[in-house]
């Protein structure tokens, strides 16, 4: 007869079962990421090996994959457009979102706070094609009449739409960051005679800076990744934007617009996957940077 010390009772088996289950769940995340990467890489590989001219790919603004005698594959204009929109969108979005998060987390109470939170979540639920619709039918004429420019589709329009789209998620992550600051910090500061603003400015903001940083980087990720709304708001013409009213074309929008019209396996098809790989690396880089900065902050 087994002694109590090595008896495998019911709880032992249940414990083992759930440990294995959690292990499988945890591993599956890695499997999916690696799987997606391999698929995208496989499709783009032929282009990278046979047709890729690195200098042309990164430094030429000419994207003419369908040209019969001399196709060129330059993504510079698209990178410039995407980057410009992301930077402008964040410049608009971050002050508003962090301000909203401060209001919700530090000042609003009771009903005000609940209603605000619901409204912001509602904003996050609007599908991106509806945002594109707003860009075309509301923002476009608005920009044309306000700034007296011939066309309202372009960097400014896209940045405004992107800022609105990113605002709810940035706000709620920033609010979480403020919520994570212990109340004892606030009480200690107020007991020292700090005003509400001083408490927020000197104690809460520094304590929440890691969370705020990740909120900002999430917004940047959103900017690089957003497709449908930008496709509709950008004007979709290949062009290095020199003013906020210029039309441009986003990396993601190019893939979305062109992939369906290419022959599977053709250089054009593969070049779109090469853009996908590039986007993959950019997001990876953003996440890595966030990770390093957060770690750096913790060490300091």
């Amino acid at each position: 007869m087994a002694t109590a010390s090595d008896a495998r009772d019911k709880n032992w088996f249940i414990d083992k079962f759930f440990q294995s289950l959690m292990f499988v769940c945890g591993i599956s995340a890695i499997v999916f990421v690696v799987g997606i990467f391999l698929f995208v890489f496989k499709e783009g590989l032929g282009f990278i090996v046979n047709d890729l001219n690195v200098a042309e790919f990164f430094f030429s603004p000419k994207w003419r994959p369908t040209s019969l005698h001399q196709p060129t594959y330059g993504i510079l204009a698209m990178v410039a457009g995407t980057a410009a929109v992301t930077v402008l969108a964040m410049a608009i979005c971050l002050p508003f979102s962090i301000g909203a998060a401060i209001f919700i987390a530090e000042f609003a109470t009771g009903k005000t706070r609940e209603i605000l939170k619901i409204l912001i979540e509602f904003l996050a639920a609007i599908p991106s094609v509806v945002w594109g619709f707003i860009a075309l039918s509301i923002m476009n004429p608005l920009i044309i009449t306000t700034f007296e420019v011939p066309m309202g589709l372009g960097v400014l329009n896209s940045a405004l739409i992107l800022a609105l789209m990113a605002a709810p998620i940035v706000t709620s992550i920033a609010e979480d960051a403020f919520k994570a600051v212990p109340d004892t910090y606030r009480e200690a500061a107020e007991a020292l005679g700090a005003t509400r603003w001083q408490t927020i400015h000197k104690v809460v903001l520094p304590a929440a800076k890691n969370g705020l940083l990740s909120a900002g980087l999430l917004g940047v990720g959103r900017g690089f990744g957003e497709t449908m709304a930008i496709l509709m708001a950008s004007g979709h013409s290949i062009n290095i934007p020199t003013s906020v009213f210029d039309s441009f074309r986003a990396l993601t929008a190019t893939i979305a617009a062109e992939l369906g019209e290419t022959a599977v396996g053709s250089p054009h098809y593969q070049s779109l996957f090469a853009i996908g790989i590039f986007l993959f690396f950019i997001t990876f880089l953003i996440n890595m940077t966030a990770d390093f900065i957060v770690r750096g902050v913790k060490k300091g």
């Binding site: 212990p182 004892t184 910090y185 009480e187 200690a188 107020e190 020292l192 005679g193 104690v203």
Partner: peptide, 17 residues
């Protein structure tokens, strides 16, 4: 008023500074 009164709480609150 609060500046005239120093407070020490039960659990130490070292602010993240």
């Amino acid at each position: 008023l609060r500046r005239k009164i120093g407070v020490v709480f039960p659990l130490p609150v070292g602010l993240p500074l």
